[in-house]
């Protein structure tokens, strides 16, 4: 059984500034940009992925491919699909982040160790939207 969660997020220059201050990631492609287009930090882009940024989820393994840049002003839709494993507190996950123009900017896979509440939700297939 599995659950799929989806969230939509628009990134602002202020988000990039806050992420830079909190993480120390001051790469010039984030702070100055390419031709005035400031690229989001990978951590900021990943923060759009449901469950990944939240409490109660420990990612034992995680693998990401960054396929295309995300810039301030872009809106992305992030989807995570969690699939139950033999251990009721573990789930495999598949992640994708897609821009409004249809460009896939990030894909990933992992193994998540869930708190009891999300693990219980695996009993039914659900699709949840949110921001």
């Amino acid at each position: 059984m599995s659950i799929t969660r989806t969230a939509t997020r628009a990134f602002t220059p202020e988000d990039i500034d806050t992420c830079a201050r909190l993480t120390g990631d001051l790469g010039s492609h984030h702070m100055i940009g390419f031709g005035d287009r400031r690229m989001t930090q990978g951590v900021l882009t990943l923060s759009a992925v449901p469950l990944l940024a939240g409490p109660g989820v420990h990612m034992r393994e995680l693998s990401f491919a960054f396929l295309a840049p995300v810039y301030a002003g872009d809106t992305v839709t992030a989807t995570v699909r969690l699939t139950e494993s033999e251990d009721p507190l573990l789930a495999t996950c598949e992640v994708s982040v897609v821009k409004d123009d249809g460009t896939t900017v990030l894909t990933g896979t992992g193994i998540a160790e869930l708190s009891r509440a999300p693990a219980g939700e695996l009993a039914t297939e659900t699709v949840t939207g949110g921001g």
Partner: peptide, 24 residues
């Protein structure tokens, strides 16, 4: 989780590093 791995991205940012692939 993302805040836990963020210090690695700080070091990458020092180099103006643009990641294509990460595995943890």
């Amino acid at each position: 989780y993302l805040l836990a791995v963020a210090p690695l991205t700080k070091l990458g940012g020092d180099l103006n590093y643009l990641s294509r692939q990460m595995d943890w």
